[in-house]
Structure formats: structure tokens, C-alpha cells
Write a protein that binds this DNA or RNA. Structure first.
Length: 616
RNA sequence: GGGGUGUUAGUUAAGCUGGUUAUAACGCCGGCCUGUCACGCCGGAGGCCACGGGUUCGAGUCCCGUACACCCCGCCA
């Protein structure tokens, strides 16, 4: 008899057969997704990455085939040969292949399967912990297969579009020299240079600028980056960027190229036509209205700055606000309104207080507004002056039944709490979906936004110095250069972030290629010429040899895939992700190593655990 | 480093103010069944209630600690 694989090659995928194929003999390979054994007839749902096809073993087939068919169990890997027949009146409208079925004449079990530890169905409730421990099985599930196939397509679209736009895909090293600042690096001890370490590149940033110096004009790369920081739902220790750098460009040129790329991704993967260009918002406006630099504009609930109003009313008669009787740098009061329509109970408001306390806030001052504009359910109500209350009601636009929420104190803290509170309420009140877009096919579900013109420096309260908000090689606005010495906080720069539904999906800048201005930027940061040379010598040197004006951007590929596919977690768009503690539950990485290995690397471990399980 | 939620058969869960032998569904095993597609029917096996202490006559249940997972703050573009 003809053998599967050797003689009998696969003729179709399990998602390919429709009514048009009726009468054909076909050969399918795949896994048993489900079986319905009627004793006489046996029905098998055969699955591969393209879909499901129903295979039938009828009673009239020979005894050996019938016996083998009864042995089939979930996840057995099999090959079948048979004839496509119409299902007649028994069509299954849920399946793409539901109009037909394959009547088997030959079956081979390539490999049996132990009972799987969790169901391999589209929707499962299984703890992620268990799914990660058997990732190869989780990856068999259709939703993850679709996601990774979409990701593959994203890579292809990116390479095609960037290639057609004249970009070169060039590689940069992963093992690089540690440079201080920015994210914490993973370190790799050097065997050949005793006592020295490589760092895993947190991005190709410096190298891509060197490509520009070298004259490559337009560079891109789909590249892994490594950052040893704590994880979040949208952060993994190793992640992928679409890294881009261009010479002789303005910010607008970079935007146009990236808009083209993002539009192509949405068009090719989802079939959605995004509206170009994407709107822009100034960083300062975003901070003022939304408390962060990645606002989700799919809903309102803007914040209202009350600092000046409170100062004007000498603290409004509210003891907690006495220190706001005069405006003071770094101290602010902000408010937002939960509309009466939300019909918030006291208990729910109390829960909000727990929510903000979880973020380090001391509490959540609040006031319910009644028909006459009076405040109720509020400790503020007792002492607030009527004038201040009227002014605040007007400022926040509060109507009867509305609930005003206040945060006050250190600016950064207020912004963090208010920004998170807004998102939390947006989800709770059903204004935005828990995750992803409401309707992936509707362009309005995709809120894309450039956030531009942020300050070049941030003031570090701890060290009392100005630090680069992005990196030290970002170009300041020409009209701001004059303030570098006198008022560094006022200097805006050509840095930009692309925001999608509240997630930062890309960030970059026009680089500073003028050595004279560069020197002034370092000086403003309190970095001496010697220090700068020590830290960034090779780049500074390179910039002195006729470096072209240049700029670039990096897109977070994982986040793009996460949002584009509507996945529930970033982990669902990464084939083999790490847990929140950076471990791999399947391979048990990181693991301990032998003393001998450490000796070769000229290092010793101080961790108590290393000694305990080194026998492994 | 800090806050929160969780951990009970292979999986998902129930288990109330502490009280006999810890339930169910799906999966698994055996039997029956030709039209199912969440197939159906009958029977069966399967548990260190995460781990370690404590309180109690008695702990899955109450208390403390630890581990792990997830979400958040800090951190991180």
C-alpha cells in the first residue's frame, strides 16, 4: 500500500476544501481536534494551522481501518486519504469547510498523544501558568496560530514596504559595551577579557546613528532588544522593534514614512484603511488634559487643572489645601468628573479610593454635586468657601449629580494617579473596551496620535539636576536653544511618540548633529566634556566627521502585534514569552550553572540559591 | 522595593458562621451506539485542598510566613 509522506504527499490544508472539491481524492495531515465515535461511523475534526476538516470513517470501510479509527484520540497526529463528499443537508455553518467532509479510505497514526494537560480549544480558562509550561501545546490553539501568522505577515509587509521605500536592512550587534543611563542592561561576562562584561543591547540606537554617519541614508531592522526592567502587561525583557533611521529628514518626513508603514500593516493584516495623516498633540497639552504622554482619545473625561484657581482662593477654605494657597513649583491640584449618568454609589467611590491608594496616593478627595451646586458626601463640603465651590464647579463643568474627584500634591504623582484613574473609569463605565478595539474593522476603533514637542530635559528631584528626558542626542527646537543655559526646563525638542489606543507604539527623535549645541546640552546636564567623551566618545567622534542631519524612530513590534490582533496580552503575540518575573516556565530559565563555568568567566555568584541547586 | 488578586482531581470551578467519607462539569479509562459537529447513554478511576508554621477537641475553611502566577506603583520609551 502507498505510504503517507513518502508516496502520499499532502494535497490540501485542513482549511482549503469547499464544495468545489467534491469528488476529488485528497490527502490531509493534521491533529485530531475532536472525535465523535458512534460505534459505526467515526467523525474526526482534523486540524492544521489553516483550519478544520471533518473526516468520516463509515461502517462500510474495511475492518482494519475501522478498528484504527476507533483508536483515535485527541491530539493524535495522523494522515488520511479519502474522497471529498458533500454533506448534503448536514452542513456545519460554523466551519469554513462545513459544506464537505472527507470519507477516509486510508489512515495512519503518525504519533499518539498522551492526554493533553488542558483543552486545545479556541477559548479556554486555563491558568496562563499551565499554558506557559506547555507552550508548544498552547501554540497549537487556533487563536495563537492566527496571531503568530499575523505577526509573520507584519514582518513581510514591513520588509516589503521599507525595501520599496529605499531602506536597507542592516544588522547591529547584540553584545555591546555597557553605557550608563536608560534602561538597566543584561550583562554578559567576558571569558576572554577577565573581569569585563558585555551588555545586551537595549536598542540599536547608537549603531543606527553610525550607519547614518557611514552614509547609508535609510536604515531599518526588525531587531530584538533587551531590557532588565520589571515587566508589565505590555513589557517583556526581550522584545522586538522595527528600528528606523533616516538622513536629511525633518520630523514630518519621519512621520510620513511611519504613517505609510502603519497604514500598510493595518491594510494588509486587517484590511482596514486608516486615515492619514495621524493627528498630532503637543506633549504639554497631553500632560495637562490626560496626565501622561500616551493619551487614549477614544473617550473624554479630561482632567482639569485647578492649581491656579486654588491659589487664587487662598486654599478655598479647605485645610488640606492650605499649602496650595500660593502656587509653588512642582505642586498641583487636578480634578476630573464622573458624570451623573454613571450613577456611582458610595461603595464604588470607596473602591476608587482603594485604587488610587494602590498607586501611592494618600486618598481620593471627592464631592458630589447637588441641584443647587452644593457638595455632599464629601469632607471638603464642610469648609469649602461658597465662592471657591462655585468657581470649581464652573471650572470642571460639574452638573447636578456629577461626582468630582480631586488629586493634589507632587505633580508627577498627581499625573500618574489621575491618568490611571481616567483609564480605569473609561473601562469601568464602558467607554473603552477592556482590551483592544471595539470593532477591529472600524477605522474609528484605532486612535492613532503623534505626541510632539516635549521638553528636552526633566528635572531630577533627587539629584537636583537636569537629565535628558529621552537621550542626550535629541535636537532642541532652534528657537529654544537660547534657553539652554538660562532655563533648561523651557527647551522643547524634536522628539515624538506614536500612541495607539493609549499604548505607546513608537518613539524617536531628530538627532542633534551640531557639536557646538551638543556641548551646551551636556553642560546643561552637568556632564563635563571629559565625561561625555568617556561615555559616548565613539559617537561624538563619529559626529565630527561630516555627520549628516538625521533622525529616526523605533516601533514596538510586539505591542503593534498585540493591538493589531486584539490579543489579551503581549505574551500571546510572542511565541515563547517570559513570566512577570522574567522566568520561562517551560525551560525553567534562568538556571544555575557549574562553578567551573563561573570560574572560566572570572566571576563568582553571591546568591545563596546558586550553591543550593548547583547539582542540577 | 511596595500594593492588590489568586493557588482545591489532568482542566475549570463549588465548598456558607471551622464539624462525619471534599462536590460538579469537561477530560481520562471500560462498555454500548451510523449522521455527529459542545454527539448521546451506562459504569469506573482520579485529591499531600501550593508549601511551612500556628490557633483549636477538630482546619480546605481562621491567623502568620514562604513560594509561584497575574494586575498595578516605583522602574522602564
Amino acid at each position: 500500500m502507498a505510504e503517507f509522506i513518502k508516496d502520499l504527499k499532502r494535497t490540501h490544508s485542513c482549511g482549503a476544501l469547499t464544495a468545489e472539491a467534491v469528488g476529488q481524492e485528497v490527502i490531509l495531515f493534521g491533529w485530531v481536534q475532536n472525535r465523535r465515535d458512534h460505534g459505526g461511523a467515526v467523525f474526526i475534526d482534523l486540524r492544521d494551522r489553516e483550519g478544520l476538516t471533518q473526516v468520516v470513517f463509515e461502517q462500510d470501510v474495511d475492518k482494519a481501518l475501522q478498528d484504527l479509527a476507533h483508536e483515535l484520540r485527541l491530539e493524535y497526529c495522523i494522515g488520511i486519504r479519502g474522497v471529498v463528499k458533500s454533506r448534503g443537508g448536514n452542513v456545519n455553518p460554523k466551519l469554513k469547510t462545513g459544506a464537505i467532509e472527507v470519507h477516509a479510505s486510508q489512515l495512519q497514526i503518525f504519533n499518539r498523544s498522551e492526554p493533553v494537560p488542558f483543552p486545545l480549544e479556541d477559548k479556554i480558562d486555563t491558568a496562563e501558568e499551565k499554558r506557559l509550561a506547555h507552550r508548544y501545546l498552547d501554540l497549537r490553539r487556533a487563536p495563537l496560530q492566527r496571531t503568530l501568522m499575523a505577526r509573520s505577515k507584519m514582518n513581510l509587509v514591513t520588509r516589503t514596504l521599507m525595501g520599496e521605500s529605499g531602506f536597507l536592512e542592516l544588522e547591529t550587534p547584540y553584545l555591546v559595551k555597557y553605557t550608563p543611563g536608560g534602561a538597566r542592561n543584561f550583562l554578559v561576562p567576558s571569558r576572554l577579557s577577565a573581569g569585563k562584561f558585555y551588555a545586551l543591547a537595549e536598542s540599536p540606537q547608537l549603531f543606527k546613528q553610525l550607519f547614518m554617519v557611514a552614509g547609508f541614508d535609510k536604515y531599518f531592522q526588525i531587531v530584538k532588544c533587551f531590557r532588565d526592567e520589571d515587566l508589565r502587561i505590555d513589557r517583556q525583557p526581550e522584545f522586538t522593534q522595527i528600528d528606523v533611521e533616516m538622513s536629511f529628514v525633518t520630523q514630518d518626513d519621519v512621520f510620513a514614512q511611519i504613517e505609510k508603514l502603519v497604514a500598510a500593516l493595518w491594510k494588509e493584516v486587517l484590511g482596514v484603511q486608516l486615515t492619514l495623516p495621524f493627528p498630532r498633540m503637543k506633549f504639554a497639552d497631553s500632560m495637562r488634559d490626560y496626565g501622561n504622554d500616551k493619551p487614549d482619545l477614544r473617550f473624554g473625561m479630561k482632567h482639569v487643572e485647578l492649581t491656579a484657581l486654588v491659589a487664587e482662593h487662598k486654599g478655598c477654605g479647605i485645610p488640606m489645601w492650605a499649602s496650595f494657597a500660593e502656587e509653588k513649583a512642582g505642586q498641583i491640584v487636578k480634578a476630573m468628573v464622573v458624570p451623573a449618568s454613571a450613577n456611582f454609589s458610595r461603595t464604588e467611590a470607596d473602591k476608587l479610593e482603594d485604587f488610587v491608594k494602590g498607586m501611592g496616593s494618600k486618598g481620593l478627595a471627592r464631592a458630589k454635586v447637588d441641584e443647587t451646586g452644593n457638595w455632599t458626601q464629601s469632607p471638603l463640603a464642610k469648609t469649602v468657601t461658597p465662592e471657591a465651590r462655585t468657581a470649581i464647579n464652573a471650572a470642571v463643568g460639574a452638573k447636578a449629580g456629577d461626582l468630582i474627584l480631586f488629586q493634589f500634591g507632587r505633580e508627577a504623582q498627581v499625573h500618574t494617579v489621575m491618568a490611571n484613574l481616567r483609564i480605569h473609569l473609561g473601562k469601568k463605565l464602558g467607554l473603552i473596551p477592556e482590551i483592544g478595539p471595539k470593532n477591529a474593522n472600524d477605522p474609528a476603533s484605532w486612535n492613532l496620535l503623534w505626541v510632539v514637542d516635549p521638553p528636552l530635559f526633566e528635572y531630577d528631584e533627587d539629584t537636583k539636576t537636569w537629565a535628558a528626558a529621552h537621550h542626550a542626542f535629541t535636537r532642541p527646537h532652534d528657537e529654544c536653544v537660547q534657553y539652554l543655559e538660562t532655563d533648561p526646563g523651557k527647551v522643547l525638542c524634536y522628539r515624538y511618540d506614536l500612541v495607539l489606543n493609549g499604548f505607546e507604539i513608537a518613539g524617536g527623535s531628530i538627532r542633534l548633529h551640531d557639536p557646538a549645541v551638543q556641548a551646551r546640552v551636556f553642560k546643561a546636564m552637568g556632564i563635563s566634556a571629559e565625561e561625555a567623551e568617556e561615555k559616548f566618545g565613539f559617537l561624538l567622534q563619529a559626529l565630527r566627521y561630516g555627520a549628516p542631519p538625521h533622525g529616526g524612530i523605533a516601533l514596538g513590534m510586539d505591542r503593534l502585534a498585540f493591538l493589531l490582533t486584539g490579543a489579551e496580552s503581549l505574551r500571546d503575540v510572542i511565541p515563547f514569552p517570559k513570566t512577570q518575573k522574567g522566568t520561562d516556565l517551560m525551560t525553567d530559565a534562568p538556571g544555575s550553572v557549574l562553578d567551573k563555568q563561573l570560574q572560566e568567566l572570572h566571576i563568582a555568584s553571591r546568591a545563596p540559591a546558586a550553591a543550593a541547586d548547583k547539582k542540577e
